[in-house]
Design a protein around this nucleic acid. Structure first.
Lengths: 342, 342
DNA sequence: TAATTAGGCTAAATCGTTTTACCTGTTTAA
DNA sequence: TTAAACAGGTAAAACGATTTAGCCTAATTA
C-alpha cells in the first residue's frame, strides 16, 4: 500500500490560492493569464517545499492521452526486437513518452487482445510488427484515426503507415551471393506463419534468385519451420536435407532464430562450413561475428527503422483528423563473412 | 486524433438506468447489491452492442492504481535483461498487469529520474536492477511502502525485497574451474561502475578463488572496463595482458558484454583458445553455445529470478501497510564448454 | 465623474470511473 | 396494524488534474 500523495489541492490550500492558479503556473500558462511573478514564485517554492508531483493519471484522464506508446512484437527477447525496443525507448523518452512492450508469440488472438488492451489504456499510439492477416482489427483502428505505424511487417491492402526493409531484395542478394560462389542446391528454412510479409517476401527473394540463375528446382528445398518449435524442427529437416545424393550445398535461414538453430544442427552433425555447406541468413545479430560456423547475414538498419517509425507516429499523434499515410522501405546490407561461404 | 469513445454514461443513458448500476454489473458486484438478473443481462447486451470498453485511465485514477509495473534495468537490449523482461511480461500479464520498461545506461541520475517518473505514473510496483549506491531515493520509496523488488543487484544496507544469485560463488566456481585445469595467471575484466553488487561480488569471488588456491598476485590482473566503452577498452587492455613474459593464461569476463568483447579481441589477435588462453564468463547467452572461441559460462536462473521477483512484488502490492521484506539468493550453474578450457 | 480597461485571480465544469449512502415500494413478521 | 426487512435501484461525492468563463478592484481614459 502506498501513502497518500499530496495533490494540487494541497498546494493551493496551503498557499491560500485556487488550484486553477497552481495549475496555470505548473503548465507555464501563468504569463498568458497574467499571474504575477511573485505569485508564480510562491507556487514554485511551495511545490518544491512539499515535493509535489502532478498525478499523471489524473492529468492524462483530463487530457485524453497517456504519453505512452504501445509496442507489439512477436517476442521481445528476440535480439532484433529488443534492439528495436531499446532504440524506440530512447527516442520516445526524448518526447516524454514511455513504452509498454508486449509479445504475441505470433498468436493472432493474443495480438488482437493486446491491441484492445492498449487502446483501453489510452496509449497514444501503437507500433506493431504484426502477425495478422485479417485486417479487420486494424481497420477499426484506422476508422478511429488511431495513431498506428506498422514496422517490419506489412499487411497487404491495409492503408496505414509502414516502415519496412526490402526483404525480397535482401534475401535475393543473400542467395545470389551463394550462387555466385558456385553453390547450386540451396535450401531455405522459412518460419510459420508464412503469411507474414517479411517471411513471404524473403521466400520470394530466395525463389527469384534461384530462377534468375537457372536453378530450376523451385521450392523443392524450401522448408517451413513452426514458430513454436524451431530448434527441433530445424534439426529434423536439416538431417534429411544433408543426406542422399541430392544433398544440399548451402542453406538460407530466414531469420536469426532459424539461423541459430541451423548452426546448432551444423555443429551436431559435424558439418564443415563452408566446405560441406554454406550458410547465410536474414537478420544480423552482434554475436554472429563470433559464431562457429560463421554466417553471412542480411543486416537490417534497426536505428533507421525506429527513427522513421517514431517520426510517422508522432506525425499522426499531433495531427488532428486523418493524416496522410506514409511508407518507407529501407535497404538492407549484406554482411559477408568470408568463411561462411567459399 | 482519436474519435470520442463511448463511456459508461452512454450505456446508462441508453438503457435508462444509472451509471452506478452499470458499474456494479461490470465489476460483478451486482449480485451483492441485488441487481436483478434481467437488468444485468440488459446491461451486458448493451455493452456488447455498443462495444463499450471501460476507460482504464479513469478507473485507475479512481482506484489509485494503474495495473502497471515498472521495470528498470541498465539496458533492455542486453540479452540477459531482455529475457528477464519477456518472462516478467508473461507472468505479469496473467495477473492483468503490463510492463513499462526503462533503461538507465548505468546512469544514476537517469535511474532516479525514471523512478520518479514511474511513481508519477502511478505504477503499482517497481522491479529494479539498480546502479545506485546512494540509497536515499529508495528510502523514500520504502517510507511510502511503495512496492519494490530489487533484482540482480543488491544495495547494501537497504532493507527491501531482493532476488539475486550467488554471484560470489558463481564467479568462484568459474575461476576455480580454470585453476583446476592448471591455469595460473588468470585475468579478470570487470565493468564500471564497480560499486554495483553483482560486479563487486564477482570480483570478490575471483579474488577468493585465486587466494584459496595460492595464487598470490591479488588484483594485479584485474581490469576495470568503463560501461560505455566496452569494446575499445577491452581490446586495449587485452593487448597489454597477452604480451611480455607474464602474459596471462586465462581470462574471466564479468558479464556477457565483456565476454563478447573478449572473444572479439581473441579473434583479432589470433589467439588460440584454449591452447593460448582459456575463457570463462559470467552470464550465459543462447548463442554462447556457438561462438568461436567457445566460452564456459556461469548461467543464471532467469525464470526463477522473475518468478520470485513477481511473487515478492505482488505480495507487497496486495498487503496493506508495511509488508515483511523478503530475500532470496538463487544458485548459478557453471556451463562447461570443453574446448574453452584445456 | 463615469466608463472602460487591465491586472490578478477564482468557481465550476469536465474527463470516466467507483463507491457510499440513501431512496422507494413491497413483503414479511409480530 | 405497524415496524422491519428486502428487493432493486439512484444521486452525488470522490479521484486529481485542466480549462472556460468570468469576477473584483484599481487604474486609466474620455
Amino acid at each position: 500500500m502506498i501513502k497518500k500523495k499530496i495533490s494540487i489541492n494541497d498546494i493551493a490550500r496551503s498557499l491560500g490560492v485556487s488550484k486553477t492558479l497552481v495549475s496555470l503556473v505548473i503548465n507555464n500558462k501563468s504569463d498568458i493569464h497574467g499571474i504575477s511573478k511573485i505569485t508564480q514564485q510562491k507556487v514554485w517554492d511551495k511545490i518544491k517545499e512539499m515535493n509535489y508531483k502532478p498525478n499523471l493519471m489524473a492529468r492524462n484522464l483530463r487530457l485524453g492521452r497517456s504519453n505512452t506508446i504501445g509496442l507489439i512484437v512477436s517476442d521481445i527477447s528476440n535480439p532484433f526486437y529488443s534492439r528495436m525496443a531499446r532504440h524506440i525507448e530512447d527516442l520516445a523518452e526524448k518526447k516524454g513518452y514511455n513504452l509498454i512492450i508486449c509479445s504475441t508469440d505470433e498468436k493472432i488472438d493474443k495480438e488482437i487482445a493486446l491491441i484492445k488492451m492498449l487502446k483501453n489504456r489510452q496509449v497514444d499510439g501503437l507500433i506493431i510488427s504484426s502477425s495478422q492477416k485479417n485486417i479487420s482489427e486494424f481497420n477499426t483502428l484506422l476508422a478511429e484515426n488511431y495513431p498506428l505505424v506498422l514496422v517490419d511487417r506489412c499487411i497487404p491492402k491495409l492503408k496505414t503507415n509502414y516502415v519496412t526493409v526490402d526483404n525480397t531484395k535482401g534475401a535475393y542478394e543473400a542467395v545470389e551471393h551463394l550462387i555466385k560462389q558456385g553453390y547450386e542446391r540451396i535450401a531455405a528454412f522459412a518460419i510459420s506463419p508464412v503469411h507474414v510479409s517479411t517471411i513471404n517476401d524473403r521466400i520470394q527473394g530466395y525463389l527469384k534468385a534461384l530462377k534468375d540463375h537457372k536453378l530450376n528446382y523451385g521450392n523443392a528445398y524450401l522448408r517451413e519451420i513452426p514458430f513454436d518449435n524451431v530448434k527441433a524442427a530445424v534439426k529434423k529437416e536439416f538431417k534429411k536435407l544433408i543426406e542422399g545424393k541430392n544433398k544440399i550445398q548451402a542453406l538460407f535461414a530466414i531469420n536469426n532464430n532459424i539461423a541459430t538453430a541451423c548452426m546448432e544442427a551444423i555443429n551436431e552433425n559435424r558439418i564443415k562450413v563452408p566446405h560441406d555447406l554454406a550458410l547465410v541468413c536474414f537478420d544480423d545479430v552482434d554475436l554472429f561475428k563470433l559464431t562457429s560456423p560463421t554466417i553471412t547475414a542480411v543486416a537490417q538498419p534497426i536505428d533507421e527503422i525506429c527513427e522513421n517509425a517514431l517520426k510517422f507516429l508522432f506525425a499522426e499523434i499531433s495531427s488532428k483528423g486523418a493524416a496522410e499515410k506514409k511508407k518507407i522501405t529501407l535497404a538492407t546490407k549484406l554482411i559477408i563473412r568470408r568463411s561462411s561461404v567459399l
